[in-house]
Deep mutational scan, measured.
Amino acid sequence: MAEQVALSRTQVCGILREELFQGDAFHQSDTHIFIIMGASGDLAKKKIYPTIWWLFRDGLLPENTFIVGYARSRLTVADIRKQSEPFFKATPEEKLKLEDFFARNSYVAGQYDDAASYQRLNSHMNALHLGSQANRLFYLALPPTVYEAVTKNIHESCMSQIGWNRIIVEKPFGRDLQSSDRLSNHISSLFREDQIYRIDHYLGKEMVQNLMVLRFANRIFGPIWNRDNIACVILTFKEPFGTEGRGGYFDEFGIIRDVMQNHLLQMLCLVAMEKPASTNSDDVRDEKVKVLKCISEVQANNVVLGQYVGNPDGEGEATKGYLDDPTVPRGSTTATFAAVVLYVENERWDGVPFILRCGKALNERKAEVRLQFHDVAGDIFHQQCKRNELVIRVQPNEAVYTKMMTKKPGMFFNPEESELDLTYGNRYKNVKLPDAYERLILDVFCGSQMHFVRSDELREAWRIFTPLLHQIELEKPKPIPYIYGSRGPTEADELMKRVGFQYEGTYKWVNP
């Protein structure tokens, strides 16, 4: 592979701008107003304001973009700056750019259920340069409990009458099928589907988006991507930290609602779906819905739930269990780990287990898709061969690698495990991989909904998990304890083995 010439960040961002501006969906010269509902909250200060700053800094926003914060707290732009700027990672050389960014910011205080507050917000936006005809993007960085009041008031008082209007809704989209349907029906009564952007930030990850290209742009994968060759698929999300004093919020939802029903299920769809007619948003989402419709409700015998306990040999936070978090209700049975087996009941995947695993306070930070292939028929190497695996590593250190057998150097035919490896950090030294939120917010500006969740996708996802969630809430089974920093409950490994996964433990990928 030829040595790549190092590029400056300015040059890299210039390439990104060229890609972005050559499309006809990006209205570079139009006025846009980006409204952050819930501007005083954690999500706004840690993710949304920093993301908008990065896009502005790199010249990736339309030229005439204004940012308006809205929340109940009586704040000023200076207050917003004070709480969000520490997350910007701005350099001293960017000081003038930073001043320009905050000059485009404003803030309006108001209630979430008060019509007069929204009329005041609308008047404020109209007073901005060309504000009355601007395109408006409303980001709901809010708890779902206020979605209905907020969307109703936005629709009645704050819509642009000339430009387009788009609304970005953060997960969780309800707690179960019934609450999700209620919320979807409410929002759909106010906005068209092409105006609604239900954001799952995992769909903005580079390697998640790469799944489609790997599958449908490489001839070698087509013939082997089926039940005849693939023994099982494992989708993993692991965090090495616990709730760390923020367990009160987590306890309301648990690990299945927080990660599995959305992030992991979306990745499953991209692995299992048929080739779409095109890369058009609805063509892709149509195929994802077909996959979900082929999955039956989760069966309790295919589920393992766990909850982390303190590690007596650990240090600091590792010595504390979930129930030691003062914000967690006493005696909570909320799971911090889950392993679930699903089956896609169609011709391509009949009988292939899709194993979804996620948890907190585990032994490493990792998100990946792992396809394990069947054993080689007619073994001539005296059971020395391990199964081939194709691994798409989402985070950290984005990579695609194939675990395969090669001859060990020497005189004899002794096979050993090795890999074919594409590590993004080595291959793409001159490429700026956008943060997931950067990519998705740019998608909203461009009107691309491919990486957002459609209402029928959402409904099918909740259909699969709601009976299990209701059973857990009714019966309150005690989750299996696992030690902070471990791989999780051993019962999860036993479940995976029972459905056909072979864990060798003899080879570990190392970032080159």
Rank of each mutant, 00 (worst) to 15 (best):
Y202V: 01
F253A: 11
C232I: 02
M207T: 03
T236Y: 06
R215C: 03
T31L: 07
K97N: 06
G163Y: 08
V146M: 10
F253T: 04
S160Y: 09
Y147W: 03
K205Y: 06
E85G: 09
D113M: 10
Q178A: 14
A141K: 04
F138I: 10
I199K: 00
R175I: 08
F21T: 13
H201M: 02
V146W: 03
F241W: 09
L61E: 04
R192K: 13
Q22A: 13
G23Y: 11
A116E: 13
K89N: 14
E206Q: 09
R104P: 03
L211S: 00
T145C: 05
H32C: 08
S179H: 04
Q22Y: 14
Y249C: 02
G174M: 01
F138N: 02
R9S: 15
Y202I: 02
I255R: 01
S106C: 12
A39I: 00
A217E: 00
F21E: 14
Q22W: 09
G14Q: 15
K97F: 07
S40R: 00
W164I: 09
I48P: 04
D58F: 10
I80F: 08
N218V: 04
S132T: 15
K171P: 03
G248P: 02
Q178Y: 09
G69V: 02
N126H: 15
D79R: 08
L96E: 08
L190N: 09
S184P: 01
E244I: 11
Y112T: 05
H129W: 11
A44G: 04
G38K: 03
L121R: 01
H124T: 12
E19R: 15
E18W: 07
Y70L: 13
I230C: 06
S29E: 13
L177T: 11
W54D: 07
I162Q: 13
F101W: 04
A6P: 15
V233K: 02
G163C: 10
L177K: 09
M125Q: 08
E63I: 12
E244F: 14
R136S: 09
E99V: 08
L128N: 10
N210H: 03
S29M: 08
Q161K: 15
N165F: 10
T243I: 07
A103N: 14
A25F: 12
R192V: 12
V208P: 01
G110S: 06
Q28T: 12
V169S: 00
S132E: 13
W53M: 00
M37L: 09
P223S: 09
S132W: 12
N165M: 11
R17Y: 15
G204D: 03
L43G: 03
F241G: 06
G23W: 11
G174S: 03
M212W: 06
L235V: 09
Y107T: 07
R215M: 00
V233A: 06
T91P: 09
H32Y: 15
A134V: 15
R227F: 07
Q119K: 12
P143R: 03
K171A: 00
G174A: 04
S188D: 07
Y249P: 03
S132N: 13
V108L: 08
S84K: 03
Q209H: 05
P144L: 02
S117E: 11
K97A: 09
D24R: 12
P144D: 02
L55Q: 09
L140A: 09
L235R: 02
M212S: 01
T10S: 15
K205V: 05
A39G: 02
N210Q: 06
N229R: 02
E206M: 08
V208N: 11
F88C: 14
N218P: 04
A149Y: 14
G248F: 05
E93W: 08
C158P: 04
H129F: 12
Q119S: 13
Q22R: 12
Y107E: 02
F253I: 05
L140E: 03
L61F: 08
R175A: 09
L96D: 12
S8M: 08
A44H: 05
E99N: 14
L98D: 00
W53I: 03
D30E: 15
L214W: 11
I199H: 04
L130G: 15
R246L: 02
R227N: 09
R120E: 14
L7W: 05
A44T: 05
S188F: 04
T76L: 08
Q133G: 08
G131F: 09
A6Q: 15
Q209T: 09
L203K: 00
N64S: 10
M207L: 11
K152H: 14
K46I: 01
R246F: 05
L142M: 04
S180N: 10
T236G: 02
Q195I: 05
K95C: 10
L60E: 07
K238E: 00
A109P: 11
E244Y: 11
Y118M: 07
I162D: 13
N165Y: 06
Q178K: 14
K238P: 02
G59K: 09
R57N: 07
D58I: 09
R9I: 15
D228Q: 11
F56C: 03
N226H: 09
L98E: 05
F34P: 04
D79S: 12
L211P: 01
H155Y: 14
I230Y: 00
A149M: 15
F173V: 06
Y249A: 04
K205R: 02
Y197E: 03
E252T: 13
G245Y: 09
A44E: 00
E99F: 05
V12G: 07
Y107C: 08
F87A: 08
